[in-house]
């Protein structure tokens, strides 16, 4: 696209981490917290003096390419990613429990600053905020690995919001629905076979039609994505 490379910025990553922490601790999914804290509050609190800033949020995607594809397919999120005015970028990918649901939050913050010193203080992607949650991590943007000084406090604060629920209710619910549908289709097939073999006449709907309907339903439900953007 001919755009300048974004630099991974420690302060923006810290702001993104704090934002993720705040969403988990105050249990909300929004750009603005229930207390009125905006993304800009987190950016300023991290010490990044922005002249321009932006935020993309995503949750519950199973891999990083899904997040990037969804952002690029959304005009407003894509605008943030390809805006040439931004110079720096920060990420936080954090697991936790939101609204009783095991959630993987991805917070992406963009910024431009007049203070070059701040922009130079960058961290590598391998400091812990980017890897484990999405599994197949690859950098989402071309980033410049300049300073090797990883922010230990950032990683420590991140670990405090990682919670792994023993029971993953959404996954169990989804699995139960598919097991139920599988059982229903199996019973209908068996019933149809018995009826046909014994040439039983009865007042009932068509098993074949029900099976076709439930198979279609199964396919449709498999297409439901869990990932959400904001």
């Amino acid at each position: 696209m001919g755009l300048p490379e974004l630099r991974l910025n420690a302060k923006l990553s810290e702001a993104a981490t704090k934002k993720a922490q705040d969403m988990f601790s105050h249990n909300y999914w929004s750009h603005t917290s229930p207390e009125g804290a905006t993304p800009w509050n987190f950016i300023v609190a991290s010490g990044y003096q922005y002249t321009m800033a932006g935020e993309n949020l995503a949750k519950n995607f199973s891999n990083s390419s899904g997040v990037v594809d969804a952002w690029m397919a959304s005009p407003t999120h894509k605008d943030n990613i390809v805006k040439p005015a931004y110079r720096d970028i920060g990420f936080a990918i954090v697991n936790g429990t939101l609204d009783g649901e095991e959630t993987t939050l991805v917070v992406q913050m963009f910024g431009a600053s007049d203070t070059e010193e701040i922009a130079q203080k960058t961290i590598p992607l391998s400091t812990g905020i980017t890897t484990e949650a999405l599994g197949d991590q690859t950098p989402m943007m071309p980033v410049e690995f300049q300073a090797q000084e990883a922010s230990k406090s950032l990683v420590q604060s991140l670990s405090s919001v990682i919670q792994t629920p023993k029971i993953n209710i959404p996954t169990i619910t989804r699995d139960t629905v598919f097991i139920f549908l599988g059982l229903l289709i199996g019973i209908l097939a068996l019933d149809g076979f018995v009826i046909s073999r014994n040439k039983i006449v009865r007042v009932a709907g068509h098993n074949l039609a029900h099976i076709m309907f439930f198979v279609s339903l199964c396919v449709a439900l498999m297409l439901v994505k869990r990932g959400v953007l904001l």
């Binding site: 959404p170 619910t173 989804r174 629905v177 139920f180 549908l181 339903l217 449709a220 439900l221 439901v224 869990r226």
Partner: peptide, 8 residues
């Protein structure tokens, strides 16, 4: 089932 899976 649709509501359960989609809004889960």
């Amino acid at each position: 089932l649709i509501i359960t899976v989609v809004w889960m």
